[in-house]
Amino acid sequence: MTRIIDAFLKRLDGLTEANIRGAARRNGRRSFLARGGSALLGAAVAAPVLPFDRRAHAAEGGTDDPCTYWRHCAIDGFLCDQSGGSLTTCPPGSTVSAVSWVGTCSNPGDGKEYLVSYNDCCGKPFVPTATFCNNNKGERPGYRMGLYNDVNWCTANADKGYHCTVSVVVGLAE
């Protein structure tokens, strides 16, 4: 019985080697890499995108108003995620303001208070189709500049034109 298995394995080994050598003669390394790259690209396109947090656009209190999103409790400006950027990044062609104002917002998802930095994105004209939000929770008079949201914060940048505002969570409020 062992001789039969050995003979079968030897024949299988010979066929596998012949098959691999034939494939190596027919196809070079470049074609292998090209086909492998195409397969990886096809898999990346066909595979679903990883899940991401859509709560920024979730309605709170039964409204579809994006200004009611918890991070926007002290925002005063156009939303960057509707202007070619995201909730936390400026759109291409604009730069984040060198200075900002800060709000303390309550996240209904976990019941905690967070410090949120509102940074204006500068250097491009605003997009008139973007939603303008003017929430003044915790706003203080103009002499408390870090808590005053009615300022063009782009004046500290080389490009002073206002485009939109991002809402970046800095950390837990103590």
Rank of each mutant, 00 (worst) to 15 (best):
D64R: 04
A43Q: 06
T88I: 08
T16G: 01
V169P: 03
P92S: 13
Y148P: 04
T104D: 04
H72I: 00
F126K: 10
T165G: 02
W70C: 11
R25C: 09
E17R: 14
T104W: 01
T16A: 07
V45D: 00
G36H: 06
R21S: 13
G103F: 02
E139M: 13
L15Q: 02
D120G: 10
R54N: 14
N119R: 12
S83F: 02
G111M: 00
V169R: 03
E60Y: 06
V166S: 07
G146I: 05
A156N: 07
P91S: 02
S117A: 10
D150G: 11
N149Y: 07
G62K: 01
K124I: 00
S94D: 00
E139V: 12
T89P: 00
T89R: 12
C90R: 06
I20E: 03
C154T: 00
T68C: 03
G161F: 00
V170I: 13
G42F: 13
V151C: 12
G36R: 06
I20V: 15
A156P: 01
R55H: 07
E174V: 11
A98E: 13
D110T: 01
C105G: 14
C73F: 10
A58T: 11
L79G: 05
G161C: 03
T104M: 02
C105H: 11
V99M: 06
V45Y: 07
N134F: 09
T88R: 13
H57P: 01
S100Q: 11
V102C: 03
N135I: 05
T131L: 03
V102R: 12
R21W: 06
A43H: 05
D159P: 14
A7W: 14
C73E: 07
A173P: 02
G77V: 05
F78G: 03
I75N: 05
V151Y: 13
V127N: 12
M1H: 15
A59P: 12
N135G: 08
V116R: 01
D150I: 11
V169N: 02
R25T: 13
E174H: 13
A7M: 11
D110S: 01
G61N: 06
D65P: 08
P92K: 04
D13C: 06
S117H: 10
P92N: 09
K137S: 15
E139N: 12
C121P: 04
L12R: 05
P125E: 03
Y148K: 04
G123I: 03
L40Q: 02
F52S: 14
R21C: 08
G146A: 13
D81W: 12
N152H: 14
T155F: 09
T16F: 06
A56S: 08
V99Y: 05
V127W: 01
A47P: 02
Y162I: 09
E17M: 14
F52D: 04
V170T: 10
P48V: 10
N152R: 07
R55I: 02
G37S: 11
N27R: 15
R140K: 15
I20K: 05
T131A: 10
